[in-house]
């Protein structure tokens, strides 16, 4: 099934359960029990995953990232949206 692009700034993210998360050399890694896939989120991907616990909407996650990292809003929004689309396609998050 092909999922359409549904993520917007006010979208709320929910993490899908059934994944084992760990940290390796400062980067977040994950093993999906459901799919048998191993994911490397990298440093910033791991930061986004952690922020999703604290901040319910995509816009809040982007705002917080811009407090931490030197990046303009347009670049940050486009790249975070693309990353979240990938997570959604892999079935690691649900978008509401």
């Amino acid at each position: 099934m092909i999922k359409e692009s549904v993520i917007q700034a006010d979208s709320q993210l929910t993490k899908v359960e059934g994944n084992i998360v760990s940290s390796m050399d400062g980067e977040m890694v994950m093993l999906s029990i459901n799919s048998g896939k191993y994911y490397n989120f990298g440093e910033i991907g791991g930061e986004i995953w952690r922020l999703a616990d604290e901040f319910p909407t995509v816009k809040e996650i982007i705002d917080e990232l811009r407090n931490i990292y030197e990046v303009d809003e347009e670049t940050c929004t486009a790249q975070v949206m693309e990353f979240l689309e990938h997570l959604n396609k892999e079935g690691l998050i649900e978008v509401n």
Partner: peptide
């Protein structure tokens, strides 16, 4: 001081028999 930004990428590897 803010950290340097890098594009977030999801690296996917197949793994469990």
């Amino acid at each position: 001081m803010k950290k340097a930004w890098e594009k977030p990428e999801l690296e996917v590897l197949e793994v469990m028999t």
